[in-house]
Simulated assay, not measured.
Amino acid sequence: MTEWIVNIMTSLGYLGIGLLMFLENLFPPIPSELIMPLAGFTAAQGKLNIVGAIAAGVIGTVIGALPWYYAGKFLGEERLRGWADKYGKWITITGKDIDRSKHWFDKHGVKAVLLCRMVPGVRTLISLPAGIGDMHVVPFLIYSTVGTILWVGLLTAAGYILGDHYQIVEEYLAPVSKIVLAALVIGLIIVIIRRRQRR
């Protein structure tokens, strides 16, 4: 996959970055943790402008969030869960993933869109409950954009600083993202248990 990403970015430049980040939102197995550090490394070589690379990544990500948002808005939770359980293995999404993201959105509301844009493994899925919950598209785009700028900027800067060791970013973020995701799930379970105890 790394070679494929490198080829697209090398041949298409900023358009390639935007396209890859768009696809990363549609198909979560494509890792932003590899795309944007590579863009930062390419900028460090003088082949791209770092601000342009970040802008391309942000635009691609935000546009890529819209199909999932509208899928949630028009298809609804039940149909999406059934579809995910049946076909989601091809893009590593299950009905449980949708439930998890919806619980997060129900608890944190619009803040979840901002926060989850910076959490690997949840970034893509948070668009679904935003659509299911009928969140207006303007605040959805605003919160998505702010969260995406922070995430994409961090990854790109890391690649710029690390140079040809940019792949270290993905290696370190992979276990960290699992820990963050586990902590979020545990936190959500604790909140649910406390609410039930209060009732």
Rank of each mutant, 00 (worst) to 15 (best):
M36S: 01
V191L: 14
M9H: 08
V62M: 03
I59S: 01
N7K: 13
A44F: 11
A44I: 04
P28E: 11
T2G: 13
L12M: 15
M9T: 07
H103I: 00
N7G: 12
G147V: 01
V113G: 00
I8H: 04
G64R: 02
G95Q: 07
R195P: 06
E3L: 15
L114P: 03
G131R: 01
W4K: 04
A43N: 02
P175C: 03
L125V: 00
H165S: 12
R81Y: 09
L188P: 07
I186F: 11
G46A: 11
D85K: 12
T148E: 04
T42E: 03
I8P: 00
L173A: 05
A39H: 02
S144C: 12
K47H: 12
Y143K: 00
P31S: 09
K86I: 06
S101Y: 12
F105L: 04
I132D: 03
L20K: 02
S177R: 09
E33K: 04
Y166W: 10
V110N: 06
T10W: 11
F140C: 02
H103C: 05
V113P: 01
L75K: 06
K102E: 05
P139K: 07
L34E: 01
I192R: 14
F105I: 02
G131N: 01
Y70G: 08
L188I: 09
K178Q: 12
L162P: 05
A112V: 02
Y14C: 08
E24Y: 14
I179Q: 10
G133H: 08
I179M: 12
H165L: 06
G60D: 04
A174C: 07
S11W: 06
S32Y: 05
H108Q: 07
F41L: 01
T61L: 04
I168L: 07
R198N: 10
L125T: 02
I126V: 05
I186A: 13
D134G: 09
T10K: 14
N49I: 05
W83D: 07
G153Y: 10
I142T: 05
I179F: 15
T92K: 12
